[in-house]
Nucleic acid binder design. Structure first.
Lengths: 112, 112
DNA sequence: GCTATTTGCCTAGATCGTCAAGGTAAAAGT
DNA sequence: ACTTTTACCTTGACGATCTAGGCAAATAGC
């Protein structure tokens, strides 16, 4: 009842975050989630139920490209790469996010 | 089709923003939206279709209290005040938001 | 006096992103 | 043998926002 209001992520940021970590490396889904988790000092957590739908969405939109391969631990895994379109999309999402976050922070009277 | 992806606000921040502006003053709905708009340098925009449901939600939860009155422009208007519970809720939401925003920024490699 | 605009409140419907909770399979550790 | 970890996938529900309407009264313009 009372409402748990779990927030592993900020709504609307997952695609952007994924594109960001793929920007440096080509990674598989599992690795993407871990990378985000580590880069955020264990604060952001990407649930699988969010991760895979996001990957499909972006693949369908041509922002990323997948190919099957073998993981570092010898398991079959799907590796993702960002496309040029994906990079452009990332840049614009990033700017938009920063603008909104700054605006929100300024209403809160908080300076990062 | 193509997807407009309008983002007047960051998802999950509206309640917090409203509590924040009510924190200084007692305002009516219309005034709340304007205040947020101004404080954010015209970046954040609160649609009425988001505003009123949010106000009811919070009133139902006991975070704010409403009372009818007359606006500065002589129109009937509903004025809202934050309750003690609302203040506590605001503080915790604010901290949570800052944490998530910082974590997200750090994944983006951005420092505010 | 008539009309348009602004102020102010309200609601119904759709959309979209995330999460919870399931399931499958294979490699490695015990 | 059994469990844990890695890895992928799907379904359903939920919650927050936006679009797009409607209503009413006060002011402004003509």
């Amino acid at each position: 009842m009372a409402k748990t209001f779990n927030a592993d992520l900020m709504q609307g940021t997952l695609d952007m975050l994924i594109l960001r970590v793929l920007h440096s490396d080509s990674l598989h889904g599992w690795g993407i989630a871990q990378r985000i988790h580590v880069l955020s000092s264990d604060i952001l957590k990407v649930e699988e139920g969010s991760l895979y739908p996001s990957l499909y969405r972006m693949e369908r939109k041509g922002l990323i490209k997948a190919s099957w391969g073998i993981s570092e631990l010898n398991r079959r895994a799907k590796f993702y790469k960002v496309t040029k379109t994906g990079m452009k999309y990332y840049e614009s999402e990033r700017e938009k996010w920063i603008q909104l976050a700054s605006a929100t922070a300024s209403v809160l009277g908080h300076s990062f």
